[in-house]
Computed example of a mutant assay.
Amino acid sequence: MKTKITYHAKDVLFKSLSEVYKDQALTSYGLDFPKIVRMLPNEFPQVKADEKKADSVFLLEDDSVLLLEYESNNRIKENFVKYGEYIIRIINRYYRESREIKTVNMAVIYASDIVEAENKISFGSLSIGVQSVFMKNFDGELALRNIHDKIKSG
């Protein structure tokens, strides 16, 4: 009798080995991580009908993408999770359309009541870095005078 082996045999084998060695360190693979406590679910089902919308997305002349967000809240870590999702969606869109992985740059413009925020957060294998602009650092009166002067001079 002929037994069929699943196409995903290697995945099944590695998953089984992971379960067998769940209480062991990962040094047998040459990985330097803390000891495994327990195996977590590895399926991430998601049916979404959301309309996530970034504030502004631009194609730059070097063919990279700029994701520009405007923030008036101080939920910095929560915002970084949101940025990660936006960045992944941008990368996915370009990859599906052209099989090209675009470089995605990110900048955040913070309202004047936010005086500081992290520029980089690491989630382990994924790090998100942004360039921050704090409106508090700008002289609004000076900007208004400059605009009035420009209007007067035509």
Rank of each mutant, 00 (worst) to 15 (best):
A107G: 00
K15H: 15
V65Y: 02
K10R: 10
A49M: 09
Y110R: 05
Y29C: 03
I76D: 00
V115W: 10
K150F: 05
V37R: 15
S64H: 05
I87G: 01
L26Y: 02
N42D: 02
G140I: 07
E78H: 01
M135T: 11
L60E: 14
I5G: 15
S18D: 15
H8N: 14
M106K: 08
N42M: 05
Y21S: 03
K77D: 12
D139L: 04
I147L: 15
L68Y: 07
F44P: 02
I121Q: 01
A25Y: 04
K10H: 02
P34T: 02
V81R: 08
V65F: 01
F123G: 06
L66K: 05
T27L: 13
S18K: 04
N105Y: 05
L126I: 00
I128H: 00
I151K: 15
N137T: 06
V57W: 11
V81P: 03
L67Y: 08
H148A: 08
V65T: 14
Y86H: 10
F14K: 12
K150W: 06
L66E: 04
S16A: 10
L68M: 07
P41I: 01
F33V: 13
M135W: 01
A111D: 13
F14R: 15
G140F: 08
K22W: 06
R75G: 09
D62G: 01
S56D: 05
Q46K: 08
T103W: 09
L17S: 04
R38I: 03
D11Y: 05
D23Y: 06
E85I: 09
E71A: 08
P34D: 08
S122K: 01
N73A: 15
K4N: 10
D32Y: 00
G140H: 08
K2C: 06
D55L: 04
V37A: 12
T3N: 12
S122M: 01
E116I: 11
E43K: 06
F33S: 11
I88F: 13
R93F: 14
I90G: 13
K35I: 05
Q24H: 11
D23E: 10
E78S: 09
F44C: 04
E85D: 09
N146M: 12
I5E: 14
L144C: 07
K35M: 04
E51A: 02
I114W: 05
I90Y: 15
L142A: 13
F44E: 08
L68I: 00
A9E: 04
I121K: 01
I151V: 15
K4S: 12
N137S: 11
K4E: 09
K102C: 07
T6H: 13
L60Y: 06
E61P: 06
G124V: 14
G84L: 07
P45D: 06
S132P: 10
N146G: 03
D63Y: 12
N74L: 01
